[in-house]
Design a protein around this nucleic acid. Sequence first.
DNA 1: ATAAAAAACGAGCGCTCGCTCTATAAATCA
DNA 2: TGATTTATAGAGCGAGCGCTCGTTTTTTAT
Lengths: 238, 238
Amino acid sequence: MGLTLDTNNTTNISNFEDYSKQFEYQDQHLYNLLFERNQDLIKSKKVGIASANLKKVFESTFKLSSKIGFHEMSLRDLSKDTGLSMGGLYSCLTKKEDIALMVLDIVELVSDKNNQIALEQTDELHSLEIAIRSYLYSSTILQPWFFFLYFETRSLSSENQIKSKNIELTTIATLEKIIQSGVDKGIFDVNSPYFVATTILIVLQDWYLKPWKNKEKNIDLEQYSKHLFRMVKKLLRI
Amino acid sequence: MGLTLDTNNTTNISNFEDYSKQFEYQDQHLYNLLFERNQDLIKSKKVGIASANLKKVFESTFKLSSKIGFHEMSLRDLSKDTGLSMGGLYSCLTKKEDIALMVLDIVELVSDKNNQIALEQTDELHSLEIAIRSYLYSSTILQPWFFFLYFETRSLSSENQIKSKNIELTTIATLEKIIQSGVDKGIFDVNSPYFVATTILIVLQDWYLKPWKNKEKNIDLEQYSKHLFRMVKKLLRI
DNA sequence: ATAAAAAACGAGCGCTCGCTCTATAAATCA
DNA sequence: TGATTTATAGAGCGAGCGCTCGTTTTTTAT
């Protein structure tokens, strides 16, 4: 806070490496942010200790729950894998569900930012490219977070399930809005902007939900991004 | 068995109503089939009683687990919702996981049949249309089954997780094979048959995974099917 | 060096889980 | 009708759950 350098809005989105360098929701920054945004849940006083523990908690949670699910992962499993005692765990949590809540918070934050960046552009095709890249890049860096939220939404309260669902609907609506704008200008030719928007989103999701599919086929991030953008242009008759 | 009339291979796939009439994996037939295929797990001797109980078990399981997840659904919840006692439940199960195993079995069976039908066709574009329709139609009738398997694969043993994953990979491979065949004949023009195949699959999955999205937008099965097929033609430059 | 504050520890609490098992009821057969 | 098989009931079992809390260890301030 205060010293963050990239409050300017010229987000570099042309390649993953540069994007990754200026992406603020990762590593130390991410866990410090979690500490700041959840001080009501966290007993620890010092940011350094709390965020080190949070780091362990999330890394182990993603590791364990990706195989067996969040509910099947016990806090004793988590304690063993993090190396923290039960007390240690509960110094940065008030209850198990808090883990899922914090994931929701971060994914929501990043998704909103992605949508916002896409809508700032003036050229519609470029806008779609920006949307695709920022979504792919951020969900690559935060893959376990996006994956977790998708599969564990049902572990949340119904209020928060709606919140999670709305992240998806908002992104579709953002894409649809851009496409519709291009249709209105006569740049795009498409029957159903909604169908194209929802298709883009699920292809974006497939990237972080089933990374093994692309690993098996040796498709890397840049190839995937180009495939998708080429597909979008076909669907929009560009 | 024996009296099933549609062992001929002229499966009617041109509209949902006709397809639904001759689709054998539903209602009484489905639960009788489950009884026959899992007699090692089922204590009940009489098919009528066993399949009536299985029907209750699966309907309640899908209802309860779709909201909170399979593992979070306790057998006491299930007992209450089905109206069966614990003993009644365990007359058609040997353990909770059996429910998930039987879902895997049915979805695998139906998916294999879908792939087989698609590969029987000679014309590639028609073949894709058949694949899309049969997948959409069957997953509409068995929506809770397909949905359950997708979200509860992680409740299965790692051996069965692989089985579940392979259903998906086999379907993609089937679609890719058809597309590649069309490319070889010069009918289709496409960069990556695999990418188109995987995109088709995830759009098919979106239909049964997020039915509320299409309900909200008043998109029915026929519209969805046409949208998807039109998209496929665009991607294949037809 | 000493006192105060913060963090880590982990046994243990109350409870719910999947599952079993015996007693009872219902259906089927002789 | 009586005998036998089949199905249902649901209390109870041990294990494991999320979470707490008195205690100990470590850090920080004086």
